[in-house]
Simulated scan of single mutants.
Amino acid sequence: MSPRGVAITGVRERLFEAAERVLAREGPGALTSRAVTSEAGCAKGLIHNHFADFDDFVAQLVLHRFRQLAEEAAGLPARAGENTVTDNLNTIALALLDSSGPALASLALTRPGATTRIRDAWRDGAPGLGAIEASVAAYLEAEQRLGRVPGTADCATLALTVIGTAHHLLMTTWPGGPDPRERLRHVIASLTAPGSG
């Protein structure tokens, strides 16, 4: 526990990491400001020093995770020609379902105040699924130029299909429920099979 009055560096990231551990271990019903600060080993009121309220914390947690995923996806076009197209698509699509993704989605859906803030942030340009989809489309176009994706393939539609499927599985998966990763791998394998373009 940090001594009172001593500044903690990287507070937001520390709280986000603690929240993700609580979500992964106990699910969205266990996520409270007290659970987060206890997990982070810091003062109970710290969340309220850095966020307007708990809905703001949840919204910023979700936006932070999507920003990280969008940054990861932005590097995808530069990897054209490496590994297989299927492997590269799996890496980015499955990242949406990894860690606490389903629990975060469940949590945001149960907190209308957080959901509204997330939607408003995305409308105002915060990176979200649209940014990830655009990176996947750019990646597929780069692979198309290399001849690893058929020239007749509609890369924008393929990207929408991959990210839309990942989003559907993210929103219909719950902690402790069936693992959706194999279904997503199957969809990507079908989309990238020879002759599917």
Rank of each mutant, 00 (worst) to 15 (best):
H50A: 11
H50Y: 15
H50M: 01
F51L: 05
F51R: 01
F51W: 11
F51C: 08
F51I: 08
A52H: 13
A52Q: 15
A52I: 13
D53M: 09
D53A: 10
F54L: 09
D55G: 13
D55E: 14
D56L: 06
D56R: 07
D56F: 05
F57W: 02
F57P: 02
F57Q: 04
F57S: 03
F57M: 06
A59K: 07
A59Y: 06
A59V: 14
Q60M: 10
Q60A: 12
L61W: 01
L61E: 04
L61G: 00
V62D: 03
V62A: 15
L63Q: 08
L63W: 10
L63S: 12
L63N: 12
H64A: 13
H64M: 09
R65E: 14
R67C: 01
R67T: 15
R67L: 12
R67I: 03
R67K: 14
Q68H: 12
Q68W: 08
Q68A: 15
L69F: 13
L69A: 09
L69H: 15
L69D: 08
L69Y: 09
A70V: 01
A70W: 00
E71Y: 09
E71K: 15
E71N: 14
E71P: 05
E72R: 13
E72F: 02
E72K: 12
A73T: 10
A73G: 11
A73W: 13
A74L: 10
A74G: 11
A74R: 13
G75M: 08
G75A: 07
G75L: 09
G75P: 09
L76T: 00
P77I: 03
P77H: 07
P77V: 04
R79P: 00
R79G: 07
R79N: 09
R79I: 04
R79Q: 15
A80R: 00
A80G: 05
A80V: 10
G81I: 12
E82H: 10
N83T: 10
T84I: 15
T84F: 13
T84L: 14
T84Q: 15
T84S: 15
V85Q: 05
V85G: 02
V85C: 03
V85D: 03
T86N: 09
T86A: 13
T86P: 02
T86F: 06
D87K: 12
D87H: 14
N88G: 05
N88R: 14
N88Y: 02
L89E: 06
L89M: 12
N90Q: 14
N90F: 13
N90E: 15
T91H: 09
T91G: 10
T91M: 00
I92Y: 04
I92P: 05
I92H: 00
A93F: 01
A93H: 02
A93V: 09
L94Q: 11
L94A: 01
L94N: 08
L94R: 08
A95T: 05
L96P: 03
L96F: 14
L96C: 07
L97K: 04
L97M: 12
L97P: 00
L97C: 11
S99I: 00
S99R: 06
S99W: 02
S100F: 00
S100C: 11
S100M: 03
G101F: 00
G101Q: 00
G101W: 00
G101L: 01
G101N: 06
P102K: 00
P102D: 07
A103L: 06
A103K: 02
A103M: 05
A103N: 02
A103T: 02
A103H: 02
L104G: 05
L104D: 00
A105Q: 07
A105I: 03
